[in-house]
């Protein structure tokens, strides 16, 4: 009950707090006077007519019952609906507060430590520095995955056309790889063509990925381990995975041709190809020439 407890422990006797008898003014304010005053106040002839009717009460009660799904407040049984609503509101406010604090604290702590800066952030910063046209190329693995969709098995790579496929096969060591098969997964922005060539030696394969990109885009794209590739003289770029396997990347006519064991930019470790960087470079250039 909202009335404050009697903190000082006084237990007033009725005759202490109830000056009996009629009073004639504030100094003699008796209980009879108070009763008369209250009655006079309540029986105000100028009171507006009541808007409450039995019908209005019934309508409101039915609406209340409908709104609460049949739950009603029963004396002695607490306040089921009100209590739940209040609890739900408190939980909602608490969750919002936690989310808000997390949204502020986590970025702050990440930026303070520096070591936890994500590749996506680095890529975005790099993209911002490089300009709007390079945003797609400079996006990190996470962004690439997000923009192109990396669900396993997703067919995002067009098949390699016959002339480029023949040129590629001709540039590879005879008998080292089989016919090009469709490449799935590892989607990237602006895909042009993709293929995977199973190696004749078990455990080897050659992955070909062609995307639309400006020269040197791979060097500007930063992954968690750093830049995707490094310049290796001329217009050749080489990406080396932790196992030492290389992927050669060349550019021409707005295309980026990557040939090596990497199925995607974030597939680590890659499958070995059994080819040297020069052999990969020759195959890549042959393919690039056929694409023109």
């Amino acid at each position: 009950m909202p009335i404050d407890d009697d903190r000082d422990g006084r237990d007033l006797r009725p005759d202490e707090d109830e000056p009996a008898g009629p009073g004639s003014g504030p100094q003699q304010l008796g209980t009879d006077t108070v009763s008369r005053l209250l009655k006079a106040l309540a029986d105000d002839p100028q009171a507006p007519p009541s808007a409450v009717t039995a019908d209005s009460v019934l309508a409101a009660a039915r609406a209340e019952r409908t709104r609460r799904g049949g739950l009603t407040a029963v004396p002695g049984q607490g306040r089921p609906a009100g209590g739940r609503r209040r609890t739900g509101l408190v939980a909602l406010v608490a969750a919002a507060a936690v989310a808000g604090i997390a949204a502020i604290v986590i970025p702050l702590s990440s930026s303070n430590t520096g070591s936890t800066t994500t590749a996506a952030n680095s890529a975005r910063e790099l993209a911002a520095a490089a300009g709007p046209s390079d945003v797609a190329e400079a996006a990190g693995p996470a962004d690439r995955a997000g923009s192109a969709g990396t669900a396993a098995g997703q067919a995002c790579w067009p098949a390699l056309a016959a002339p480029p496929a023949e040129a590629l096969s001709a540039a590879l060591p005879p008998g080292a790889f089989g016919a090009p098969l469709p490449l799935d997964g590892g989607c990237e922005p602006n895909p042009v063509a993709g293929a995977v060539l199973p190696g004749s030696v078990p455990g080897t394969e050659l992955v070909v990925r062609v995307v639309g990109a400006e020269p040197g885009a791979c060097a500007r794209s930063v992954g968690e381990a750093g830049s995707r590739c490094v310049a290796s003289g001329g217009d050749r770029y080489v990406a080396t995975d932790p196992s030492g396997a290389k992927t050669v990347i060349v550019y021409g006519n707005g295309n980026e041709v990557a040939i090596g064991g990497l199925r995607s930019v974030d597939a680590v470790p890659s499958m070995p190809t059994g080819l040297s960087a020069d052999q990969l470079d020759a195959a890549a250039r042959a393919l690039l020439a056929a694409l023109e």
Partner: peptide, 15 residues
């Protein structure tokens, strides 16, 4: 829903 002592004290204070 309070004690009788509380009612008495509140009555005195209210008056």
């Amino acid at each position: 829903e309070c004690s009788e002592g509380n009612v008495k004290s509140q009555t005195a204070r209210g008056l």
